Simulated scan of single mutants.
Amino acid sequence: MILLIDSGNSRLKVGWLTATEDAATQTTANGQTAGPLMRREPAAVAFDNLNPHALGDWLGTLPQTPRLALGVNVAGPERAQGIHDALARHGCPVRWITSREQLLYLKNRYTEPTQLGADRLVALLGVRSRLPSAHPPYVLASFGTATTIDTVGPDDSFIGGLILPGPVLMRSSLARGTAHLPLANGQVTEFPTDTHQAIASGIAAAQAGAVLRQWLAACRYYGQAATLFVAGGSWPEVEQEMQRLLKQTGGSPNTHPTAYYLDRPVLDGLALIAAQPDPLSF
């Protein structure tokens, strides 16, 4: 067993590379199976919101200790050290994947490749692992503490992406930075008539509008329709507005783009690395 660790700013996800691979499903945002899917799924989620101490306790219950852990960590050195210590108690070394100019067949076109968040690059690799060798451009929008919206071309080159505050950060910044605005939890509507609605709708509009901007930019840049994937714990806050905008895009009601939801693209990318003949070389 090789442990897979996605240590994000808000959540810690843990999975593993299994010996028996079950057929994966790819779903749209409403849960229906759809979209391009070529490979079988090696990653399974064990925990979705874990702390390092609980990770060590869980490892102690396993009939087989993982021989290696591969992970990405964007939550800082203290979190990384806590995970390292929890794994060390069970004799399991951890290798942190960092960004570079090329990761397997995915090329990183950042001006300084090492400055790209490793979670973004590995997540894009996870999406790529689901596609055939010949594929259209794709956009991955991940809604977490920060929202990232990244584009990869048919030549497997990551050409750039956006970073903006995630929905939770947007909401909390309004509450902290103003004297009278609440920590809102309102309904998303086109024409809000109270403050809670206005804030919730403004946040959803900003998030969905940024995604649509990048999707349209990718379509224009490559001269063909890009496939849109979405992920992250804050996706439900954006989904309604995103689906509304997508339905207004395209030549007819039946040709508008679809947002394909992925629940663990970072773990998918780590699983692909773990399946290589020498995962320690990464």
Rank of each mutant, 00 (worst) to 15 (best):
G126Q: 02
Y138R: 07
F143T: 06
T28M: 08
R79T: 06
D278R: 11
T27G: 05
N108I: 05
G144S: 12
R120H: 07
V152E: 10
G233L: 06
S172V: 10
N49H: 03
D48A: 11
W96A: 01
A86F: 07
I97R: 01
I163N: 05
T151K: 04
S157H: 11
A29M: 13
D48P: 00
D85N: 06
P257I: 06
R79F: 02
A88I: 00
S129W: 04
E190D: 14
R213I: 03
L124N: 03
D57S: 00
L169D: 04
P192M: 14
G161L: 07
Y261Q: 15
L164T: 13
L280M: 10
R244Y: 09
G117V: 06
L140T: 09
H135Y: 07
Q115G: 07
E239T: 14
N9R: 04
V230M: 07
L4N: 01
T25H: 08
R89T: 12
W58M: 02
D119N: 08
G202M: 10
A226S: 15
W215V: 03
E101Q: 11
A210M: 13
D48C: 07
H90P: 02
F47P: 00
G233T: 05
E112M: 09
G232F: 11
V230L: 08
L124W: 08
D155P: 05
P137V: 14
A19C: 08
N185V: 07
S281P: 12
A75N: 01
